[in-house]
Design a protein around this nucleic acid. Structure first.
Lengths: 223, 223
DNA sequence: GACAGTTTCAAACAAATGTTTTAATCTGTT
DNA sequence: AACAGATTAAAACATTTGTTTGAAACTGTC
């Protein structure tokens, strides 16, 4: 079985058409099937390339997977959710903006990022050797930014256990809609992830969380 | 590629030793690798059985998968989280008990249920044809019970959008610790899921949620 | 046009995978 | 002990899968 090499390849600046098509197609297939069950032949069929092209451009299947992740991590255009926090004048506003950005990011299929979310869902179910790097480069900084916001809201250090648990409470609400997508579809058939509904959910999560956090802040003040 | 037949097999009352060992081993392997990537040979090696035994007892790999799910769903011993709600004298208490039961269930490895949680994580990433049945028999009733509790707390119908979003906010916090286990381990290295820590997290989720819900209830009263 | 390097391709390769087949062995009943 | 049905096992089978190989085709430079 294919395994992941330990190092992410250096980004290559050239723009080969076949290479790009392979990365695009692989993003979709890895998003649908996860690394293990995705097949090189399916990817190449979608990319309109020969199966040997994967080895030519990426050395092996694992190299292609890492290239997809690398591409995903370095993609411009859409800012990171943590950037939203920087634009806010208050931590409450920061939390609202960040929550909305996270949720939108997870459901935004127009920029093709939805398939990368599905790759992450598969990565949770079946971690590859690339996970620590993804955590370090994407998940970790957003998590830290969330904890920083909560630290200011709670009046506690960012690595305090309560701050961390609150961070996971907020993040858990957001990622739940993405991770449990197939189940939620069955539990709540009327739910359509329109932009309006996304905004409503983001708003709900923010309010839910801010009021809970307000309570913890007040409880701390009374200690 | 193997695919899932549409119907769950009827539970068989006989207790064949080989059959039982296969179900046990398959639960582990499907939990580690998901349906697609789990191999019949790995399962049979762990069960101390010949590869043809899968076809003999379960017709095919998919039949074994369904038998594992069926076994999981009919397993006695541990009550459903929704049963906890029935023991409560107030809906607040019900929410606390149910939240704790859900969290414990997802992390309780002594009864072997942790592997079934991992099967569910894989099922989220890569739904099989068995998912609707699992939702109908396990996830759905617990979801309905949660919504019933929240309905009473919020003073709104159980299928109201706000009630549903609150239900997902609570459930999202709980399942997040299980689904994102590998990532959380990297983000929060000091976190050890001891029974004490589980109780602390359950308590946190309950309080976080109850205070948020209290706000929504009060906001409704002022309308 | 010649040449070198790059890209693409089809076939071959080796291994893995779920399933089928056949026969030996086991078990329970008479 | 004979018999029938159940269980187990190894080999075979057919297909799938990622990778390798060697050559054809392409591209850019002189």
């Amino acid at each position: 079985m294919a395994s992941i090499s330990p190092a992410l390849p250096e980004p290559i600046e050239q723009s080969d058409a076949t290479r790009a098509r392979l990365i695009e197609a692989a993003g979709q297939v890895f998003g649908e099937y996860g690394f293990q069950s995705a097949t090189v032949r399916d990817i190449c069929t979608r990319a309109g390339a020969n199966v040997a092209a994967v080895n030519y451009y990426f050395r092996d299947k694992a190299g292609l997977y890492l290239a997809v992740l690398r591409d995903s991590m370095s993609a411009g255009g859409q800012p990171e959710p943590r950037d939203a926090a920087l634009r806010a004048e208050t931590p409450e506003e920061g939390l609202r903006l960040m929550t909305a950005a996270m949720l939108r990011r997870m459901h935004n299929s127009r920029t093709g990022r939805a398939c990368h979310l599905r790759i992450m869902v598969h990565e949770m179910a079946q971690p590859t050797e690339a996970l620590p790097r993804v955590v370090e480069e994407i998940i970790g900084p957003n998590y830290a930014a969330m904890r920083e916001l909560l630290s200011r809201l709670l009046g506690r250090p960012a690595d305090d256990d309560l701050t961390r648990m609150c961070a996971h409470s907020v993040i858990g609400q957001v990622v739940h809609y993405a991770h449990a997508g197939p189940v939620i579809g069955l539990l709540w058939p009327d739910l359509k992830m329109t932009p309006e509904r996304l905004d409503a959910i983001a708003s709900h999560i923010s309010e839910f969380s801010l009021h809970a956090i307000k309570h913890f802040k007040e409880a701390t003040s009374h200690e």
